[in-house]
Amino acid sequence: MDTRFLGIAELAEAPSVAVVVDVMRAFTVAPWAFARGAEKIVLAESLDDALALKAHHPEWLALKDGPPAPGFDLVNSPGLLRSADLGGRTVVQKTTAGTVGALAVRDAALVLCAGFVVAEATARLLRARACDSVTFVVTGEDGHAEEDQACARYIAGRATGAGTDAAEYLRRAGGSRAAAELAEGVRQGAHPDDVALCLELDRFPFAVVATWEDSLMVLRPHPAPPAADGASARALPGG
Score class of each variant (00 low, 15 high):
52 A>N: 05
218 V>Q: 06
112 L>V: 12
39 E>A: 14
221 P>H: 05
230 G>E: 09
134 V>D: 04
200 E>T: 14
25 R>C: 04
85 D>E: 13
86 L>T: 07
199 L>V: 08
156 A>V: 08
119 A>H: 07
223 P>D: 06
106 R>F: 13
167 A>K: 11
33 A>H: 11
213 E>T: 13
216 L>A: 14
37 G>R: 10
187 R>E: 09
160 T>W: 06
148 D>S: 01
238 G>H: 15
203 R>C: 06
21 V>D: 00
58 P>K: 10
185 G>D: 08
196 A>M: 05
94 K>L: 10
93 Q>T: 10
151 C>S: 04
14 A>D: 07
239 G>V: 12
99 T>D: 11
148 D>R: 00
131 C>T: 12
204 F>H: 02
174 G>I: 05
8 I>H: 08
50 A>D: 11
66 G>V: 12
200 E>C: 12
53 L>R: 06
137 V>T: 00
103 L>S: 09
42 V>H: 06
202 D>M: 02
148 D>W: 00
97 A>L: 12
54 K>I: 09
121 A>V: 05
27 F>G: 01
208 V>W: 01
68 P>R: 06
183 A>L: 08
190 A>Y: 04
238 G>T: 15
27 F>T: 03
2 D>A: 12
63 L>F: 08
48 D>R: 10
205 P>Q: 03
116 F>R: 03
72 F>K: 02
213 E>D: 14
21 V>E: 00
173 A>I: 00
127 R>L: 13
50 A>I: 09
143 G>M: 03
194 D>S: 03
104 A>Q: 13
62 A>Q: 01
224 A>K: 02
30 A>S: 15
85 D>P: 09
210 A>R: 00
195 V>S: 04
122 T>F: 07
24 M>V: 05
54 K>Q: 15
120 E>D: 15
129 R>C: 08
227 A>Q: 14
23 V>N: 05
57 H>P: 02
95 T>V: 10
215 S>N: 14
212 W>K: 11
107 D>V: 05
103 L>Q: 14
184 E>C: 07
